[in-house]
Design a protein around this nucleic acid. Structure first.
Lengths: 234, 234
DNA sequence: CCGCTGTTTCGATAAGCTATAGAAAGTCTC
DNA sequence: GAGACTTTCTATAGCTTATCGAAACAGCGG
């Protein structure tokens, strides 16, 4: 099933609609991604994906045995915010700035992702055996964020809160706010990806900093950290 | 279609499974609610609802022409957190305590609701003409929260942030955290409804208070306010 | 040149879903 | 007891995801 050497174009029965460009697998992922962005995962049918990729509905199943597998493949191409957290958790800069940088990067990634976080989570939950990586990544991010918060408490930068609960709240805020970027509710202001990322990190840090007045400085430090530890140059 | 006087039990063709107890409409809503809580909206089929209510699948459509109408009816029975906001927005108590009370009440309601907020929103968005009330309620809650925040800024209790953005962040945090109460992610701690409500309101107020040390006092004041303005005694 | 094997696509179809249409089986009113 | 009204039923259309086996090609050995 789908051994798919990187053959140019020739093999197997030809398509009714002229043959494709690149590898069918990538083609399907690309078209599916565009449709997911436009309509969401649940509202996109395999027939639409097939039509966009120039295939018949059932032919898509040769490359992806289940609809969720397309999502899974898409996920594997979209890692990134964990790298920032992994790089910054053991670093020696002030914990507040590192936490800000991690949260901001996570929010940016949530906004840039082709799929709403909650839609992702819904599918992942229905297929836990295939989406183990999703939960592992989330749990690792949570652990790293908790650790940075603990460091900040120890150093006196942050208030003495429960680090685990604070990390949960911080990530929840990221997730909740990405929704407002992605699908603005009628009657409410619309936000850019950077708006919500800054709003989220600002809010969390303001709630944790022992001296709230230090927020602007933290923000500046975090921007410098992000420039160095961005996943682009890994 | 479904004029449904509150007749005792007699009218129309009898059911194959012995006749029902109360009004079929209420019966369907009750069984559907239980199923939605157990499995979520999308994963609950009309056949299951019908079976639980002692009807055939198509008979449910006599009472609810579309599946979403069941959800809509369910929504109309579950108002409440808006009442707290309406009562407290014009009140004269300190704004910080009123904001805390509103946010806490909203979070409690999100946790107690039979349906995940995001699942609700998804359906509401697909049927805007039927769920106008949902968006109106949300927008009113947002407006009231913004107003209380503005009052707090004016009185000097709260930092000088953008009230609209702060309200969006506060409600987003409520929504994001209800998810962690409702569907704990594997490997993470589980929270009670009161845990997440307190965590959410604490976090937001900590991020907004000019003097973070006042948080315990605000929390106490808010509890007193909630006791007086709870929707139960309206 | 011809059949064999492997690869990819196709058409047909099963099973489950929401929703509709019309017949059927009662009660109620006169 | 006839006709109207209410409620439930059976049957079915049209959509979805997913499976199955046949069809159409390339490349290879004889």
């Amino acid at each position: 099933m789908g051994s798919a050497k990187t053959v140019g174009a020739t093999a197997g029965r030809p398509r009714l609609s002229g043959s494709a460009g690149g590898s069918p697998r990538q083609e399907i992922i690309r078209e599916a991604t565009a449709l997911f962005i436009a309509k969401g995962y649940a509202e996109t049918t395999m027939s639409e994906i097939a039509r966009s990729a120039g295939l018949r509905q059932s032919s898509v199943y040769y490359w992806f045995a289940r609809k969720e597998h397309i999502l899974q493949a898409l996920l594997e191409e979209n890692r990134g915010s964990l790298q920032v957290a992994r790089a910054l958790e053991p670093a020696s800069e002030p914990a507040a700035a590192r936490l800000y940088a991690v949260l901001h990067a996570d929010a940016v990634q949530l906004c840039a992702s082709p799929l709403d976080f909650y839609e992702f989570e819904r599918v992942a939950r229905s297929q836990p055996q295939n989406f183990g990586a999703f939960f592992e990544d989330y749990s690792e991010l949570h652990r790293l964020a908790s650790s940075i918060i603990q460091q900040g408490i120890d150093s006196g930068e942050l208030r003495a809160v429960d680090p685990e609960a604070a990390a949960t709240a911080a990530l929840s805020l990221n997730e909740g706010l990405q929704r407002h970027y992605r699908q603005p509710l009628p009657g409410l202001r619309t936000y850019t990806a950077d708006d919500v990322s800054t709003l989220s990190a600002d809010t969390t840090l303001a709630s944790l900093l022992r001296v709230p007045g230090k927020l602007p400085g933290v923000r500046t430090q975090a921007a410098a950290l992000a420039a160095v530890n961005s996943p682009a140059e890994s």
